[in-house]
Design a protein around this nucleic acid. Sequence first.
RNA 1: GCUCCGAUGGUGUAGUCCGGCCAAUCAUAUUGCCCUCUCACGGCAAUGACCUGGGUUCGAAUCCCAGUCGGAGCACCA
Length: 521
Amino acid sequence: MGRVNDLDYAEKRARLEDLAPEALAELEAEEEEDEYDLPDLPNAEAHDEIRMRCAPNPNGPWHVGHARMPAVIGTYRERYDGWFCVRFDDTDPETKRPDLEAYDAILDDLDYLGFEPDATYTASDRLETYYDHARDLIELGGAYTCSCSGEAFSELKNSGEPCPHRDKDEATVREEFEAMVDGEYDSGELVLRVKTDIEHKNPALRDWVAFRMIDTPHPREDASEYRCWPMLDFQSGVDDHLLEITHIIRGIDLQDSAKRQQFVYDYFGWDYPDVIHWGHVQLDDYDVTMSTSTISELIEDGELDGWDDPRAPTLKSLRRRGIRGEAIVEAMTGLGTSTTDVDLAMSSIYANNRELIDEETDRRFFVRDGTQVPLAGDPPAEANPPLHPNHEDRGVRDIPVGDAVLLEAEDIPDGDENGEQRIWLKGFGCFRFDDGVLRYTADDIDVVREGGVDVVHWVPADGSVPVRMRTMDGDVTGHAEPGVGDLAADDMVQFERVGFARIDRHGDGKDAETVAYYAHP
RNA sequence: GCUCCGAUGGUGUAGUCCGGCCAAUCAUAUUGCCCUCUCACGGCAAUGACCUGGGUUCGAAUCCCAGUCGGAGCACCA
């Protein structure tokens, strides 16, 4: 037994293969099955092709929570060899006014996450389609124009009473709706309601609004002439059918939508897609709320530098910090699709990212708030720490050392004669701290192996690169070893004992700062 | 007020449909040890959960009822 446990995995597998090949096959088959993070889609086998949509409101670049939708439907698309589109549900030019730059910003965020939609639609291009369906619905007796104020209707609705407009004859409804389409009413004057069940036990489903008038022109020029706009439940319901969506995945805030839209589907004789609702996601570690409008305000007020400020919980921010989209996608699919609210730990995104980048990311020294200490005792002229501890083949860094180094204050020995006064400058050698000077001792590495002498990171006082590292908790300044000045923007480094960071840009001229963005430990 | 959901360790998740294989899976987190020219990686170990109360049953995380807590909708927002 003990001998078996001492074997490593490959050996155990080989031994098992000899002894009981069928048991091994079974074990490995089980492992295969377990590889999915996400549950099976309901009724997947009933469709030739799984078709899904991601339907954002383009009112700003995406925050981290938005990544959940593409992560999940993108993963399902791969798993079922399916299809998904992006559909911009931009049918409110006023309250949720679209931001013209957000359309491309969202597609860009999607690309960062590693997904390309099979098609892209924009609801504000499709108003004529919605009008046509409204006309059909009116003909089926499924809708009526209503001039009640929101308040008055709400009161009637809550007591389960129909409003006087409910029995309007079809010709009048048709006529008034055409006048709505032609923009002959002002905002608030008239709406088109779907006739559902005014006594339905759930008040949320009673005769909801399908179209309303909006005076403010849509920001997209192609849509700026329209004044009669569909509500989400109508627009989205019609589009989901026309795009042959088989599976809708969305938040619990739209829990009642399916039931509302079901009335329209019934009038038209359509089958409603399968729906999955999930709860809200919260992120730990951030002071800023994950909300597009809040972030947008903070940027406007100058509290944040922009959508990619390291303190902003946005995809642009994570991207700038050098976190791969894949790390976010994995964290998101790991959340599953439960209807409960969930807290996503940033540490799980970091752990995924570390796994992706650790092997390929070279090590560098970065000393925060360095204290200068002179060297003595004739040390070597150059230090040569490895680029990566697990990859000797990549070679070493050549760090020319002058007559002084910068150290972090806590790494400098305390000068107490009773304590160990030697430190090992990594990749360089052993020094004894004496009277404010580090004197080279020429001890070999055994003094470290035997314990007692601490290894510290350091940079030469001359030739090091001033660095401003931007973090979630504010900027950190210090100096990185000279070679960092030669790295390209976008290169990742691991500052030893500090963490992973992405090189953002180098400054111009002498003494100009290099800017790096901190990713994670 | 009316109507829907949901509840497994610090976090996420598996198991719940079809009760026993669950003194509960995996990941992450935290701690300790090993490895190591710091960190990271890797290895080993520890920590830590079935919301509460009833019921059904030989047996309940799983089924039933009640309660508690949490979330969502009842918009001319998405």
